[in-house]
């Protein structure tokens, strides 16, 4: 692997990895908030699922 390809691979890994980590953190935060809200206020969370 040439030096050019090492830099290209590192760039793609950084960008894809960065977005992936943020996406995983967001999904887990979103799921935790949804779960907690469903425990505290089941009616409101059911309403939020209904189409407007």
């Amino acid at each position: 692997m040439s030096l050019h390809w090492i830099h290209v691979t590192a760039s793609y890994a950084l960008v894809c990895g960065g977005f992936l980590i943020l996406a995983i953190a967001t999904i887990s935060r979103h799921a935790a908030a949804k779960r907690r809200l469903a425990q505290l206020d089941p009616r409101a969370s059911r309403r939020a699922q209904e189409p407007s």
Binding site: T26, R29, H30, A33, K34, L37, L40
Partner: peptide, 11 residues
Amino acid sequence: RTRAAVMERRI
């Protein structure tokens, strides 16, 4: 993230 923040505020 904004959706999660809205839900956290409600919690």
